[in-house]
């Protein structure tokens, strides 16, 4: 009387499908695990971008500094346990309008931004040119701030602008726009109904 077939089970508990080619089963499992590893993270949703309308500041020989405070807000009504990153920058254009058209000495404009506790360094423009057709451009960016969506996220932002150099009679007109970017780095989907505002008209 022949004995019943013995199950092929490794003491370690490793599955040993006796009737399958074990080598190929292992290869298939390895392939699945490799694909699972490579596909374990997605690029995530595209960041939300926000741009303010053009804002205006005016510097003069008697008032060489100016600042504007605004509040950047991120609100997700369902308050998911998700973290987002807020990036903020500003693009400025400065135009030097001297009282005396023959006055060409003007200095430079510099600017910096802060968002919450992070602050950018001062960034300076090139030398201002009197009544130039092409305004001097200047860009300042902040390191990204992380923000939890579990509660409404509102962070105070400040743009400071200075006219550097020996002030001359006349004004420096500064037009600027705030550029915001909201990045989603946790989870695969953008939270529903999330709003990102720069607090500027």
């Amino acid at each position: 009387m022949s004995s019943p077939p013995r199950p092929t089970v490794s003491p370690s508990g490793v599955v040993s499908p006796r009737f399958f080619p074990r080598r190929w089963v292992a290869r298939a499992a390895l392939l699945v695990a490799c694909v699972a590893s490579v596909a374990s993270s997605n690029p995530g949703p595209d960041p939300l971008e926000a741009t303010s309308s053009v804002q205006h500041l005016r510097l003069s020989s008697t008032s060489t500094r100016s600042r504007q405070v605004f509040v950047v807000g991120v609100v997700a009504p369902k308050h998911p346990e998700q973290t987002v990153t807020v990036g903020l920058g500003a693009l400025l254009q400065a135009r030097w309008v001297p009282d005396d058209a023959r006055d060409t000495s003007s200095g430079v404009v510099r600017a910096r931004m802060s968002l919450g506790r992070s602050q950018s360094t001062w960034r300076s423009s090139g030398p201002l040119v009197a009544n130039a057709e092409t305004p001097t451009e200047l860009r300042t960016d902040l390191p990204q701030e992380q923000c939890s969506l579990r509660e409404d996220c509102r962070v105070e932002a400040v743009l400071e602008v200075e006219w550097e150099g020996e002030p001359r009679p006349g004004v420096v007109e500064v037009d600027w726009v705030a550029l915001g970017e909201l990045g989603f780095e946790d989870g695969l989907d953008m939270p529903p109904d999330v709003t990102f505002t720069l607090g500027l008209p």
């Binding site: 013995r6 199950p7 092929t8 089970v9 490794s10 003491p11 370690s12 508990g13 490793v14 599955v15 040993s16 074990r22 080598r23 089963v25 292992a26 290869r27 499992a29 390895l30 695990a33």
Partner: peptide, 21 residues
């Protein structure tokens, strides 16, 4: 009562362990 026969390991078969898979 169980007959246990150690199967010869093949490359990559650690992934077939139930916990790992």
């Amino acid at each position: 009562g169980a007959h246990v026969t150690p199967s010869r390991p093949v490359p990559g078969d650690a992934l077939l362990h139930p916990l790992v898979f």
